[in-house]
């Protein structure tokens, strides 16, 4: 995995609670056997009309979303299925971070393993960010801070191991594979 240390971008806000994985990537796009090309289908059914033209009312189709790599979303983002296609689709659509006051466990886990920063902040700060879409944010993984346009800082906390993996680009599979001897020993005594 490539290291992820900072993300600097404008934000885009989706102020809807409980955005589930079927909204992030509908099941009919899960028949793929690769990770590539899912970005077009991120939020597919909110984003595209039946005839394939963009839904103009949807925020990601509006000019202010152009180039925004930070998504601020309502509470309990990513609930539902374990499909890793959800973070793959967001990354492929150009997002590098998702911020909410609560993010579903499996989604957060999947996202961070792919270098998509899934960050939980307190509700007051969350409401502030949702109320100011389009502002320039700087996310710094090492100091666990989001710096807002007005200079104020919002804190988030990552699991210390996950943070180190992001900063150093550590690959968890490599880390686990190095534990082969311990695993051998466990299997011998189990």
């Amino acid at each position: 995995m490539n290291p992820v240390r900072t993300v600097r971008s404008r934000s885009v806000a989706l102020a809807i609670d409980n955005i589930d994985t079927d909204q992030i990537i509908p099941a009919r796009f899960l028949t793929t056997t690769t990770r590539a090309g899912l970005g077009r289908h991120a939020f597919n059914d909110w984003r595209w009309r039946a005839d394939g033209t963009p839904e103009p009312g949807f925020v990601l189709n509006q000019p202010q979303a152009e180039g925004a790599a930070i998504l601020v979303a309502g509470r309990n983002f990513g609930c539902g299925s374990s499909r890793e296609h959800a973070p793959w689709a967001l990354l492929d659509a150009g997002f590098q971070a998702v911020i909410s006051s609560a993010i579903a466990d499996i989604f957060r886990n999947n996202a961070l393993k792919n270098g998509l920063l899934a960050l939980v902040i307190d509700e007051v700060a969350h409401a502030e960010l949702l109320a100011h879409p389009g502002e320039r944010l700087l996310i710094d993984v090492a100091s666990e801070t989001i710096t807002r346009e007005n200079g104020r800082q919002v804190r988030f906390t990552l699991d210390p191991f996950v943070r180190q993996c992001l900063l150093d680009g550590i690959d968890e599979l490599g880390y686990l594979s190095q534990r082969a001897e311990l695993i051998d020993r466990y299997e011998a005594r189990a």
């Binding site: 890793e84 393993k113 968890e172 599979l173 686990l176 695993i183």
Partner: peptide
């Protein structure tokens, strides 16, 4: 419990997961 595809790879290769 359910896991993502990256973790499916971890279990296939090592029969283990990193967990809190």
């Amino acid at each position: 419990f359910g896991i993502g595809t990256t973790e499916v790879g971890h279990v296939l290769a090592t029969q283990c997961l990193l967990q809190r």
